[in-house]
Simulated scan of single mutants.
Amino acid sequence: MRDDDNAGLDGLIPSHLSRRGFVMTSLMSGLTLATTRVEAQVIHTDAEGIEAGEVAIPAGDGPMPAYRAVPKGEGPFPVVLVVEEIFGVHEYIKDICRRLAKAGYCAVAPELYARQGDLSKMTDVKQIISEVISKTPDAQWIGDLDATVAWATTAAKGDAGRLAVMGWCRGGRAVWLYDAHRTDLKAAVAWYGPVGGERTAIQPRTAGDVAGEIHAPLLALYGGADTGIPVASVEEARDAAKAAGKSVELVVYPEAPHGFHADYRPSYRKDAAEDGWRRALAFLKAHGV
């Protein structure tokens, strides 16, 4: 982790981060067991023309399971870090990586909760939040994303000069925080990530807290019918960024609930999901990724 990458996150990264062993040593198969889902995924992306599969990323304290999808060919290809929801790197997240690879990207989704619990076996959302999400230090997953960048740009045909991050739900929160951490990001896309929330010793700052400290332009895709994330709170974060001379483009889909891109859940809204995806790809390209 470079010193300049710590800019804007004073108090977030302790000088000595205690690592614990990996509970998950491989990714789950299929979809998460922890949420009601529709009969089948709406979108299934094949691997024709790309290389896709599970990988192990050196993370300092052992190999971290992850999913990588990249176009066939020598590259290098622009890199998109794919940050999961709270449910782990399951088939939906893997499919997103393949969609990005089909669009020309080296897409990598590390299992950021692999030390805290085995998400492949958890069926209770409250258990996931209390035993895994709330106990994962922000400094830990930030370090793991840094390790993912290092691996992708040295061993996976990724271009270090064209780096972006994209995340959903809790991963959307991570996008805001990682944008405030990483000075060499070119673009960031947050899908309905909470901007507020409880502050704790290991998660000391909210996305809203760092809105004025982001480095790369950020596209914020949110649902107007999201009962857990008031649009006003996202507008406040956007305005804080703007006041600090930063760039946040906010798009709100008035009738869309939380999770409107998750095509394996009843929350899926086809029109909003497809429009958001088109905007996300255009945003990456417009900002050099």
Rank of each mutant, 00 (worst) to 15 (best):
A101P: 02
R98T: 07
T123F: 09
C97Y: 10
L100A: 09
E84T: 13
G117E: 11
V89D: 13
V83G: 06
K94R: 15
A114I: 06
V80C: 02
V83L: 15
R115N: 04
Q116R: 09
A101Q: 04
V82Y: 01
L100F: 14
Q116E: 14
F87C: 01
L119A: 03
F77I: 00
A101N: 03
D124S: 11
A114N: 02
G104F: 00
E111C: 07
K121Q: 15
R98A: 04
E85C: 03
E74M: 13
I96V: 15
I93Q: 09
V82N: 02
V89K: 08
Q116A: 11
V79T: 05
A103V: 03
L100S: 06
V79A: 09
M122L: 14
V79H: 06
T123W: 11
R115M: 02
G73F: 03
Y113G: 00
I86Y: 00
P110D: 10
I93R: 04
F77L: 02
E91M: 12
G88H: 05
I96G: 05
G75I: 00
K94V: 15
V89Y: 11
R68I: 14
V83Q: 10
K94I: 15
F77Y: 13
L112Y: 00
V82F: 02
D95Y: 08
F87Q: 02
R115V: 01
A109W: 06
E111P: 01
A101V: 03
I93K: 07
A109F: 03
E91P: 10
H90V: 15
K102C: 06
Y92R: 10
V83N: 09
I86F: 01
G104W: 07
M122E: 11
S120C: 07
G117D: 12
E91L: 14
E74D: 15
D118W: 01
E84S: 14
A109S: 11
Q116D: 06
G117R: 11
